[in-house]
Design a protein around this nucleic acid. Sequence first.
DNA 1: GCAAGGTC
Length: 701
Amino acid sequence: MRLIISEKANTAKKIAGFLAEGEVREGKYRSIPHHTFEWRGDECVSVGLKGHVLTLEFPEEYSNWQKVEPAELIDAEVRKTVTEKGVAQAIKSLAKKADEVIIATDYDREGELIGVDALSLAFEANPKLMDHVKRARFSALTRGEVTRAFDELAEVSRELAAAGEARQDIDLIWGATLTRWVSRATRRYGSSFLSVGRVQSPTLVLIAERELERRRFRPEPYWEVEAGLRAGEVFTARHAAGRFKEKDRAEAALKNLAATARVVEVRERSSKRQPPTPFSTTAFLAAAANIGVSPSRAARIAEDLYMDGYISYPRTDNTVYPESLDLREVLGNLTRVEGVGEYAGRLLKAKRLSPTRGKRQTTDHPPIYPTGSALRKALRDDQWKIYELVVRRFLATLSGPAETKRTTVKLESGGEPLSAGGTVVVEPGFLAVYPYGRKPDEELPRLSEGQELEVVESRLLDKETQPPGRYGQGRLIQLMEDLGLGTKATRPAIIQNLYDRGYVHGDPLVPTETGMAVAKALKDYASEIATHEMTARLEKSMDDISEGKVSKDSVVDDSREILRRVYKHLEGSKEAFAGIVWSGIREDQVLGPCPQCGKNLVIRRNRKSGKRFAGCEGYPECRVTFSLPPRGDIIPLGRRCEACGAPEIKVIGGRRPWITCINLDCPKRQERKDGKREEAGEPSGPSKRRDLERSTTSKSG
DNA sequence: GCAAGGTC
């Protein structure tokens, strides 16, 4: 029997369907399905893994963070252990009956490693298989590609798999060593540990650097002169100088404006906006983020939709529909979809379909497109939102460009030049079906040169320059891709991790002071792990390994050597490093000024009960306390409640973050509460501290 | 209680 091992259940099933010369018999080992069929006169069994079924870890004796010096991890043995027991059992059981094994995992570095790991399980159960291994390399899950790959079976590339192993080793060794070192140096144990990693740390640094730019930014005042002009209706024109840096010059211009303005020139310009390209994972996640669905949620939902047959495989870098994709068949399906059915039907009538294409073309998976028609009521609201996005994007890629008309008008009043502009969509094209981010039309009245208009009003606008904006999640995903950080499958998880570690909050992403401090300390004392260059160098080394130019061991050993150097430097700067991080952590605990004495209110913990509360730094002179929500992360917002003046906080945890002031007696809170029932036994503040002997500053910092 | 990479 020939055992065919692929990366996931779906692929295993499809391979069986493509190769079978006759019927496919479905079977199961425990909960793992497999497919038996005949191909070229041989019996074959096709089975799917669940991605990586082995994971890397340090032996048990290294598990105590306090007792083991992190440095020991640099040279410690690393082991592979099974994470998917059921799958491993199924592979072993099937391997016993096999006389040949064909690796049919994804045709990429991780796929090769996943396949080689599966082989090690197969050999354990049946060593005779060792000399009977083949590799099927197909880069599209189509009948043609798969049968070709099985007709031209190749050898497994140990080198390519070794490149993947080098990545695994280096990520674990650096990540675990530095995570533990930083956590120990700052005495953050248990769930409040501080993490470090090849991808997450440079990502955090990106966010922190943008925040520093914002802090360094000094807004500069400028002024604009605006006038309301009547041409039938009233529209707004602006002084042609745009931004005045000096107020008196702006005021002079304003004063010069006469009671009428004369149209000097009217220009119209048509332009076309091309429809968007097919969805790669990154483009999809960015678009989802723009409609308010976070990458990690969008990825999760897309996975569900894929499993239910509504959309194609959601992890792809491809932005060009393959020849084999029957666009008309997809359109046919979409004629039944609520809201877009008619549009799809119209597209279907076209003689030729010419889809847009993006820059990146790969053949492993098609771009993300709808594979089935969904009923709105069959999906949850968030699922529908994502499904609809994929559907509309697909339709947009088959649509024509949008045509817009831009009108610019030059005017003059009292010797001052004015200008006005407006853009209208004259031919919606793809915008008719893909309205996301569409700006409303701004239409100017019809004007002709020489026309005199009444100046209805005029004003001076007081403005200032704005700092660069924070990264939204979609923007960050795109930036990570541009810098080679993470993969299409891991970026959402990496970002989620930054939230979970308390390094960032909100969207756009706001770094916490702890996040800022960790980023700074890493940049100052372990810059190797703080930039995307480590990934770039690793990629180069992995290419060398897969081409047989260099061994995995030498790459990993070189990396260990660098880590030893970094480690030594860190050890020498332990106090400085911890000092930076501690001051960040402390700042995250400062809620705002005490309403009674003006000193800082900070988050503290009652030593006995462990309950947290807000206490005044002026203690014992000032004994003001407030109670705090018992659960969830507390983010100080640095502003005060409008109603009572107490500091406001954001509480993260539970269903969704909420914002509140810390004063339970706040009139605003009472108002809201009046409708509801009073919660019994809830402590209220401000109150005098009663348990002063037992209270102490939180030791976490 | 560590990382990042798959898949679910």
